[in-house]
Design a protein around this nucleic acid. Structure first.
Lengths: 150, 150
DNA sequence: CTATATTAGTTTGATATAGAACAAAAAGGA
DNA sequence: TCCTTTTTGTTCTATATCAAACTAATATAG
């Protein structure tokens, strides 16, 4: 006899989130140019929105991946010529990552390639409050993030 | 000059979903007994809620993983004695997966182990409409699922 | 100042997963 | 009936990721 604590609503929430994450990754990577993975595209997209260069550690934290994973992702992007990695002159440990013109172009191509999927989704979710949904999820993400650190 | 299609709200939505998926998986697996992965627990949890036995292909579809992945996950659970896999007598291709008493117990242990994390989250998200949120996500998941097949 | 602790990034080893190729069985059409 | 297509499950290969060990540089405490 399942009681109230069995299979709580939060299970279902995380289950949906996991499945959507999987489906979205597959959908995105299917159309990505330059063999970009979602992780690589996310980094490019992130960099394209900022003027200042970013430290790898900061980005690893922003995307919630390990430092090793970020090293790997940045290495792939550097090999493709989409980012440039330079030492931090003020801190011998640190580095800075900057996006190149080629990287910006690749990011634009990727956004264009995603266009049809996003347009389709946008059409289907027109009745949804996507911003509100995102905001709620962001709050939950911050909670999980804080608990992980604490 | 970013236009309307640049960095749409849907990017941010999927970004949040991906990060939460990652954080939740880590949080869950940190406390899981019997070295259960989230995938393994999800399968156990799924089976614990049904009386009828499930076909691997059906479960792969339900969880949106490849058939190969489901073969692997079920193999791990079978090795731990948490499920039993039998041939489908009516269809030489098919199999059936059933949960064992040990599997049910392990699933209960896992739920108990998740208790503190879930209680904490439940407390923090009391102001959120978790069911509503889940429902919205389920709708989006169904859309993605349908597009993938179609 | 010196010793210890923390932080940034890399490397290594393990693993979960996808995707494709495969074999076996069933279904469907002629 | 026979041939083609579809479905089920497994195997194999590649890869993205994590966790932990490691190095180097910086910060902090005494």
């Amino acid at each position: 006899m399942p009681n109230k604590s069995d299979d709580p609503a939060l299970f279902r929430l995380f289950n949906e989130i996991g499945i959507i994450s999987q489906l979205a990754t597959t959908m995105f990577e299917r159309v990505m140019p330059h063999d970009l993975t979602l992780a690589q595209f996310s980094v490019l997209n992130h960099l394209s929105k900022r003027d200042d260069q970013q430290a790898p550690a900061k980005m690893a934290n922003a995307f919630q991946v390990s430092k090793g994973t970020m090293t790997s992702t940045l290495g792939k992007l550097e090999a493709k010529g989409f980012v440039v990695i330079t030492p931090n002159p003020k801190d011998g440990r640190g580095k800075f990552v900057g996006i190149t013109a080629t990287g910006l172009a690749a990011r634009s191509e990727a956004v264009a390639a995603l266009g049809p999927d996003l347009a389709w989704l946008s059409d289907k979710t027109v009745s949804h409050d996507v911003s509100g949904l995102t905001q709620q999820l962001a709050t939950i993400r911050e909670l999980l993030d804080a608990r992980r650190d604490g």
